[in-house]
C-alpha cells in the first residue's frame, strides 16, 4: 500500500528529451530548471514586497 502511495504520480523515468542547437545540447528537464531560475529571479526583482504600501499609508 505504502509502496503504491509513494510511487511517482508523474513518471520521469522514460527517455529524456533534449534541446539540441548547434553544439548546445541540454535536457528539457535542466532547461526548465534554468529558465525557472531566471524567471524566479526576475519576478523577485519586480514583485512588490508586502509592507511597502503600509509604510506609505502610515507615513
Amino acid at each position: 500500500m505504502a509502496e503504491t502511495l509513494l510511487a511517482a504520480l508523474v513518471s520521469l523515468d522514460g527517455t529524456g528529451h533534449y534541446f539540441h542547437w548547434h553544439w548546445i545540447d541540454i535536457s528539457y528537464a535542466n532547461l526548465t530548471v534554468i529558465i525557472l531560475m531566471v524567471v524566479v529571479f526576475v519576478v523577485a526583482l519586480f514583485l512588490p514586497f508586502p509592507g511597502r504600501r503600509n509604510k506609505k499609508e502610515t507615513r
Binding site: F41, V43, A44, L45, L47, F49, G51, R52, K55
Partner: peptide
C-alpha cells in the same frame, strides 16, 4: 528600511 524586496528571501 531598505531591506524590502522578495530578492532577500533566497
Amino acid at each position: 528600511a531598505y531591506v524590502a524586496s522578495w530578492i532577500y528571501v533566497f
